[in-house]
Structures are given as structure tokens and as C-alpha cells.
């Protein structure tokens, strides 16, 4: 299996729902807690596994605003894994999920250096590296109702801009959508072969105009013929 996320840039409105869902699930999850420093003071900061950035593409007035959620892309060529000296970072053989064994990490940051996507954040309080787990502790939890065996961010997204699935299975929803809508890789030139794909904003919907002749004499009261319309 090659599990990952398909993220739809066409519909994401940047609500941060996935980011906070991720935070709350994972702070008590398998790699928890996710610490926050200075939470009520100056420059609050903490460990997040999923963040939303916003870009403006093109110049005004024709620019397009794009919300861009990013978490670990569970790359096939995950250099974050190969550089890790302790072996704490690894990519699971069975499903391709890239994880950090919290008990083995020494907090050297090297994996974060090796990740082009900013998907790894050191938890200063805990001294270990945190990253998206693809909610491994949800997706396999047989005690959760089946429809809830999904990453927290996917479950919560109000615009269904996040889909979870197996990219190895050509018939999975994520594979089909990625194929049909031209799912893209971020920084493909680096060769990390990310599993997560991004669907581009669609061509805008177009509607024809009602065909009218230029005269348009609707204002003329004299020319108005009332139809027989029953109340």
C-alpha cells in the first residue's frame, strides 16, 4: 500500500480546520504531546504537523488566492529517513507511512534539514522530532467505527479538500482523482516523489450569456403586453 493524502487546491478555503484537528488528535496521539511554548505570551509557537499557508498567484487585479495546506507528503524517496542517524525516522514498508519513533529520536534536526516541505518540526519541550503520522493511530484502529478510520484532518475538512487513500491501488478514489485532475507534485525537481498529490484549481466554470438583441426595449411601458397569468 502507498497511503497518502490528495489535497484539492480548488476548494480549500483556508479555514485551518485540518490544522487544529490534527493538533488536537495528535497531541494525545501516538507521537504526543505536541508542545506549545509561550502559549499566552509574546510570539507563541508550538509543534504542528499541518499548516496552512496562503499565496497570491498572479498580479492584481487578476490574481488568484490559493490556500495551501501542508503536512508530510510521505515521500517515496524520503531523504528525511535516509539521513536519520538513529533510525528513529523510517518509512513503513507495509503502507509507506513515514514516522518518527519517539523513543529513539535524539533531536538532531537533520531530518528536518532533509525535508524540502517543512513537514517536520522539533518539539522543543519534548526534545524530539514531530511529524504527520497519517494518523496511523486512527486509520488502523479497529475499535473506531469504520467511517472514522480516517485521518483527523480528512474527517474534519468542511470542503472535503482532503482525501485519504491508497495511491498504489489504481482504483482508489485518490488514484482516480489524481489521474483525472492532474494531481501534481511539489518541487518535483528534487526527486522526493511525494505520495501526497495536489489537485490544481480548476478552469473556472463558465456560463453563457442570455442572448439578447442590443435594442432591449423592455423599459417601454407602451410596448408591454401583459400575459394572462393566474394568481
Amino acid at each position: 500500500m502507498k497511503l497518502g493524502l490528495l489535497i484539492d487546491l480548488d476548494t480549500c478555503v483556508g479555514c485551518h480546520g485540518c490544522a487544529t484537528a490534527c493538533k488536537q488528535w495528535n497531541t494525545s496521539g501516538t507521537i504526543g504531546p505536541l508542545s506549545d511554548s509561550n502559549p499566552y505570551g509574546k510570539d507563541p509557537d508550538g509543534a504542528w504537523l499541518n499548516r496552512i499557508r496562503t499565496y497570491e498567484v498572479g498580479d492584481a487585479p487578476g490574481s488568484k488566492t490559493v490556500h495551501f495546506p501542508m503536512s508530510c507528503l510521505h515521500c517515496e524517496n524520503a531523504d528525511c529517513v535516509t539521513v536519520c542517524p538513529t533510525g528513529a525516522s523510517y518509512k513503513r514498508e507495509e503502507d509507506g507511512i513515514v514516522l518518527v519513533d519517539q523513543d529513539k529520536c535524539m533531536g538532531c534536526n537533520l531530518c528536518a534539514w532533509a525535508c524540502p516541505y517543512g513537514a517536520r518540526e522539533l518539539d522543543r519541550d519534548q526534545g524530539v522530532m514531530k511529524k504527520c503520522t497519517l494518523c496511523v493511530d486512527r486509520i488502523y484502529d479497529q475499535n473506531l467505527p469504520e467511517e472514522e478510520r480516517q485521518p483527523a484532518c480528512v474527517l474534519t475538512c468542511p470542503t472535503s479538500s482532503r482525501l485519504f487513500g491508497d495511491f498504489d491501488d489504481p482504483q482508489s478514489e485518490v488514484s482516480i482523482k489524481a489521474r483525472e485532475r492532474g494531481g501534481r507534485d511539489l518541487m518535483p525537481e528534487l526527486g522526493y516523489e511525494p505520495t501526497n498529490k495536489y489537485l490544481p484549481p480548476r478552469e473556472k466554470a463558465t456560463v453563457e450569456m442570455f442572448e439578447v438583441d442590443s435594442s432591449g426595449d423592455g423599459f417601454s411601458l407602451k410596448g408591454w403586453v401583459n400575459k394572462m397569468i393566474a394568481r
Binding site: D45, W48, R53, Y55, D59, M187, E189
Partner: peptide, 28 residues
């Protein structure tokens, strides 16, 4: 060769950051 365009997949126009998604500097 890695640009904000290859990063965001928008290779045909200028891309500008509007919001980082967090006010204070983060780990990255």
C-alpha cells in the same frame, strides 16, 4: 531551480506569499 513556483505548482505566474498561517516564527 527550485522556486516558489515549483514549490506551489503554479509555474505560470508570479507567486507571492500572503499568509504563513502563523503569526510568530515557527521552528522552520
Amino acid at each position: 531551480k527550485t522556486t516558489i513556483n515549483t514549490a506551489t505548482t503554479f509555474t505560470e505566474a508570479t507567486v507571492r506569499l500572503f499568509d504563513t498561517g502563523h503569526s510568530a516564527e515557527n521552528f522552520l
